[in-house]
Design a binder for these strands. Structure first.
Length: 316
DNA sequence: AATCCATTCAACCGCTCTAGC
DNA sequence: TGCTAGAGCGGTTGAATGGAT
């Protein structure tokens, strides 16, 4: 038996929205102080569209806080950095770019940024340099996990360090800029908590992994990195409020949930690979010895210097 | 001027997650 | 505990557009 359709599509209109339909939708939401139930909205508003289509039109186009126009260089850099950490989790990335939608960012990535990374000799999925040994790495799942864990930890620290150093030479104007995004995160309670994890609060994370590993749908990164994603994004789950605005749970509420989960979950729920990954990551010399990164950072990080004022420099 | 091809982006589809019962 | 409906998310599609030939 097939899955039932999300709504009765008979007689419903598809395709591009007309200005009249836009007007009806906006007027309805404004008049009612929110969209309410998307499923019932089309009938109540008098639209021959399914609720899903209305939601998409509102969240991606009609919301008053949508920022139109081309992405700035700073926004593009931020998207690349966040993608390196979050992967294809467009909604989480959109959380960090006010006024930009997940759909817009996804399109930007697929049409522009992915090509730039490929052009620069980087794998757009892993952000790692494409090398001849990549086949060998693929052959070993555990090794891949190990590399990703090392890579992401190192890069996070490096981003923060580079941002900090750059801010010393280039004092940020009042209000800051997007370029010191990682510095702000690193110095915030989010970053502090991340550092705490590495200093020994392992139990919390280890248990949280067993939860997230079953819920993540990304599949391209280790369960632990899903937790890092969550920390960096400041959310354990994203959603939208009545106005369609993206909302993230605070990091505190997230850690509270993890603490609660800590009481109820058992350690044997951890898969071997996850366990090894966590162990590896906590053994990783993040706080003390990052010299390997300073020596050879170009091998690992997407060089910020390659992003010039007006364009990306393609070394090929 | 006509045709072809590549690119962009709005919109749809189908899957997953979650809250409520 | 299991089921269902609703909402959200990411992947994909296809119409529109612009540039090249």
């Amino acid at each position: 038996m097939g899955r039932s359709p999300c709504c009765d599509k008979r007689g419903l209109k598809k395709g591009p929205w007309t200005p009249e339909e836009d007007e009806i939708l906006v007027e309805y939401i404004n008049k009612n102080g929110g969209h309410g139930s998307w499923r019932s909205l089309p009938n109540l508003a008098g639209l021959l569209r399914c609720g899903k289509s209305c939601r998409l039109r509102w969240t991606n186009y009609l919301r008053p806080d949508i920022k139109r126009g081309p992405f700035t260089l700073e926004e593009e850099k931020l998207v690349i950095q966040l993608h390196g950490i979050l992967g294809n989790r467009w909604a989480a990335i959109a959380c960090q770019l006010p006024g930009r939608t997940d759909n817009e960012i996804k399109n930007l990535w697929n049409t522009h940024l992915k090509k730039h990374l490929i052009c620069m000799g980087l794998d757009p999925q892993t952000h790692e340099p494409v090398t001849s040994c990549s086949t060998t790495i693929k052959a070993s799942a555990s090794l891949t996990t190990r590399h990703i864990a090392q890579w992401e930890s190192a890069r996070l620290e490096a981003e923060a360090r580079l941002s900090r150093e750059s801010s010393l030479f280039n004092p940020v104007p009042v209000g800051g800029s997007d370029s010191d995004y990682f510095l702000r995160i690193w110095n915030s309670e989010v970053g502090e908590s991340f550092r705490k994890f590495n200093m020994g609060e392992k139990t919390l994370c280890q248990n949280s992994v067993s939860q997230s590993s079953s819920s993540t749908k990304c599949g391209s990164i280790s369960p632990f990195m899903t937790e890092i994603d969550t920390i960096l994004a400041g959310s354990s789950a994203t959603g939208r409020n009545q106005n369609g605005d993206i909302e993230c749970k605070s990091f505190k509420s997230y850690t509270d949930e993890m603490m609660a989960a800590n009481d109820s979950s058992s350690s044997d729920e951890l898969e071997d690979s996850s366990d090894n990954t966590i162990k590896l990551l906590f053994d990783f010399p993040i706080n003390n010895d990052m010299s390997f990164l300073e020596e050879d950072i170009d091998k690992y990080a997407m060089p910020p210097a390659m992003l010039t004022e007006n364009s990306f420099i393609c070394p090929l």
